[in-house]
Design a protein around this nucleic acid. Structure first.
Lengths: 242, 242
DNA sequence: GCAAAAGTGTTATTCTTACACCCATGA
DNA sequence: TCATGGGTGTAAGAATAACACTTTTGC
């Protein structure tokens, strides 16, 4: 950073700046829910197969080099769109990974984002020989340090799901409370009390009743809710304005 | 990131990779407490004066270019030591700032860390014409987007202070509960009930009674505690192992 | 009517908060 | 003995969690 140069110059013998062969990349862990044939829905992520060394043939999270004229989040959105054709409903920076030895031969610093996409959109997303969806609890060995990155992203998703209201990013414009609860249950991997969940959501004031109901079920028709967009999805402090 | 290149090549016409003129820097917001002449202690940070354009003459948070052979946290520690002579008791990555227009003329992505240093150590830290400590509630206009960065770092410090046990990083090896409470009060900027604070800390099991007491006060001698290093400072999930 | 999920009510438990009050020391 | 902060006790209120029970639909 700029402040750096000045301070270093002030306090130490200035070394010839190594025109650092550091490559800056932006990658994204993309989460979607997939309804499971047996049992509840689970969390899935799309991965891309490496077609060159290092780690040729292994799967990796999608990403790409940062272009000079785009913001970090823009780069995340772009590479996300390029690989999977998806548009995220939620996107947040996860962490910058920069261990010296994380990429054999080269020095790569990856600024990683995590994203949530709608289940319905994920279902029709691009999938090919080199792009495939994986269940997060059945991941193969990934390229680089991507297993650790996914593990951390999953931890953040679960942690944030408990104190924030991001679950509806997996859903369509309107949804029932049961659907919203299924999202929480899939991410947290434990059943939630429907009664208490209802009160918890109502207390948060993040959803509004559309007045509509879902008919055709063989039980009492549930209300349809819409997310109240006047309230921020997640609390990121003063960062939201930057 | 590596995974990127493969995926991009798979799905779109490969453009000549722009050998991006993106500069990668690492900076750190360094927090210390300063006892105030009147009233309680407050949060201070060291800043360095810019000695060249852009923003020449303005104050900025310390940092420096990332070297090819050092980790991100190592770079933060190094630049921190170079500018202030300080060794942090706590260091955590804050955020990667990468807006296209944040540095006039060039494209700089800053990976920012935040650090806590002991008050006693901060007192004897290097200070000069171009390095000075500022109270966080009386900051001037800083270079680049550093005002926003400091605001975000402060938000993180306060948020983390409420659910994590990082306060003792401001203190020496042993401390009284009153000192620990003063740290919380200074950061959170509100008084805390001594009785409830005591129980909260005892319940957290993060400190152990040394058996010693402080004498010489004109009241009941308080116990001295030590931080229980067998417990992690802060919860960073699976990241601690990376 | 029956099954199934929607939705409401109620209670026990834990956590939080406020504050009264005693304790141990120096002056 | 008094002032001062160290340290303990207690009770009200809020938040959490468990679960009984009523409602509304399709079959």
């Amino acid at each position: 950073m700029p402040g750096t140069t000045a301070s270093a110059a002030t306090h130490e013998t200035r070394e010839t700046p190594i025109s650092a062969p550091v490559i800056l990349a932006v990658s994204t862990v993309i989460f979607a829910l997939r309804p499971n044939e047996t049992g509840p829905a689970t969390v899935w992520i799309p991965l891309v197969r490496r077609i060159r060394e290092p780690f040729e043939g292994l799967w990796a999270i999608p990403g790409g080099a940062l272009r000079a004229d785009e913001d970090l989040a823009s780069a995340a959105r772009r590479t996300l769109e390029e690989t999977s054709g998806l548009t995220p409903r939620y996107l947040e920076q996860l962490y910058a990974f920069g261990s010296v030895d994380r990429a054999p031969g080269t020095r790569v610093v990856s600024i990683v984002y995590w994203a949530l996409v709608r289940s319905e959109e994920a279902a029709k997303a691009t999938e090919s020989e080199n792009v495939r969806w994986f269940s997060t609890d059945e991941l193969p060995t990934l390229a680089f340090d991507h297993n650790e990155i996914v593990a951390y992203a999953l931890w953040r998703l679960r942690t944030k799901m408990e104190y924030s209201r991001i679950a509806h990013a997996f859903l369509g414009d309107t949804f029932t409370l049961a659907q919203l609860r299924e999202v929480h249950e899939a991410v947290l991997q434990r059943p939630l009390d429907p009664a208490n969940f209802r009160r918890m959501i109502e207390a948060s004031k993040t959803v509004v009743d559309t007045g509509q109901r879902v008919t055709g079920t063989r039980h009492r028709p549930p209300r349809l809710y819409r997310y109240d967009s006047s309230i921020d999805l997640a609390d990121v402090g003063p960062l939201s304005s930057i």
